[in-house]
Amino acid sequence: MAKKTYDLLFKLLLIGDSGVGKTCILFRFSDNHFTTTFISTIGIDFKIKTVELRGKKIKLQIWDTAGQERFHTITTSYYRGAMGIMLVYDITNEKTFDDIVKWLRNIDEHANEDVEKMILGNKCDMEEKRAVSRERGEAIAREHGIRFMETSAKANVNIERAFNELAEAILDKTAGGREPDADHARIAVERRPSRAQHQRACCT
């Protein structure tokens, strides 16, 4: 086997309504390049981004099912093994924000109970078309005890930062990764103690 070029591997999911810009976020973050021919048995696999956090090389494997949102196939198997989830809505489209609650429920039902979540209000460069205030975004995040950030894949606002924060949060939980985190001060929505209660839901 090839020598491992990373210390940790994190599986992250991008979730949200169609058209919120998930794929754009992914393209902005990963340095994906297309080959000239599409091979049906391979499809499009993304170059995985490796980031360095606290001296550790962390390989981020980001999954996106853009285009499939209308099919209610995304079930337990897709969420299995995900360590972090980016929950994306479009600040210019109220419906995508309202659906965040539905997606949260889905995540609760499907994903690992200790999965790290973050809500992203994307397209924040389109201020003139804004339909969802930043305050509302922050409120729903606070209510569910989740991190929140407004991003723009187009203008490259907060994309890098969002992934780094999510990765750091996962790193915090990973065995050996629990070090006092100085960066927490700049997180827009702090984690609440209520997380534990919130996760009580699924157990068998």
Binding site: T23, C24, F27, F34
Partner: peptide, 11 residues
């Protein structure tokens, strides 16, 4: 649809 979405956004 997913493949087409990626190709559309990426090229």
């Amino acid at each position: 649809l997913q493949d087409l979405t990626f190709v559309h956004a990426g090229n």
